[in-house]
Amino acid sequence: MSTVRFEKVSVDYGAGPVVSDVSLGAIAGEWLAIVGPNGAGKSSLLRTAVAAVEFTGSVMVDGRLTTTLTDKERARLVAYVSQRPRYPQGMAVFDYVLLGRTPYMGTLASESTHDIALVWEALSALRLEAFASRDVATLSGGETQRVSLARVIAQRAAILVLDEATASLDVSAQHEVLEVIDALRSSHNITVVSAIHDLTAAAQFCNSVAIMDRGLLVNHGAPVDVLTESVLQEVFDPSIRVLEVNGDPVIVSLRSEEAYQ
């Protein structure tokens, strides 16, 4: 059972709070989407889960306070993919995925055959075997996202924190990556917490959605309950419309009528 729970979490970089008193949780195997306009505090909230920012309040993973865990213990529980990961020039895909095994290695140790086997498992889960020797810096956007996911799968963390993992992808590549995440979530029983811009995708893929605005948690619940026109119009823009296709909400932004004239 791997759950993640944010309790009264606040983040302040020195110029006023960017996250204020947010309490929010996800249960094991759940996919929680965090949506909101740019600057809403989504990334900062996610970064508290991996201790990448200073914050007040508490974050519990698996029932344990992250502040009581060592860096390695935390890294074995929570894996993280940043908005724009750095893919070092000249590094082979295999080596990049192998970095996911870092929390399991002693400071001076090198990888075991077990580590290597897990890297191959991760590569095969993301259909990347043929790319193993390729330079990670020469791959396309969709391929590098899969490589990042392979790295966090090799990390064997039960909680996956994704910061806009698909923001830079075209529609089909984004869809493919989200499907991969969903498959990994069910096959490995992983809890996913992801910031996501595409509200329609959030509605289709995620079990629950939390809306943030200016550092505050506005609403949290099942996608159909939370992603309503009135809430979204208030948080994002009055031009937002929520349509429905096959029972799922489809969220679009319409150009105002005056603009056509």
Partner: peptide, 23 residues
């Protein structure tokens, strides 16, 4: 020499490296 593998870990950037359990 002892730190050569950690230099590879650092190459993904400080934030990603810290989420991999190193400082």
């Amino acid at each position: 020499f002892a730190g050569r593998r950690l230099l590879d870990v650092l190459s993904v950037g400080d934030t990603d490296a810290s989420t991999l359990g190193v400082r």
